[in-house]
Amino acid sequence: MSTGFVFALAGAVLFSLGVAGVVLIGHLLRRILAFNLMGSGAFLVLVGLAQRQDVADPVPQAMVLTGIVVAVAATALALALVRKLHALTGQLGLPGDVDE
């Protein structure tokens, strides 16, 4: 089994763990970490699967660089929202949604 393949398999595991984390974890900071795990998993699959013959392919590498910057932007926005919610409610979890 090639190194690229191992990366892709690790990516599949990380992605699944990340999605499970986002679904199951209520603590918002940990949920943001879970989202990042999920993103990293997708990046590993993108690069690893394309290089399964262990020859570097620059196209997915550049795509992953783009993806990382997008993930950084999303993470920063998520952190800002969590801090604002914490400042307003003192909670690090989502309050129930009510229509009143």
Partner: peptide
């Protein structure tokens, strides 16, 4: 925040799909 997580998980799944297609 609810919207953000939904939209990020959605595009994350889409991105993994794109990775598999590539």
């Amino acid at each position: 925040l609810r919207y953000l997580f939904a939209t990020l998980v959605g595009s994350g799944a889409y991105l993994l799909g794109v990775a598999l297609i590539y």
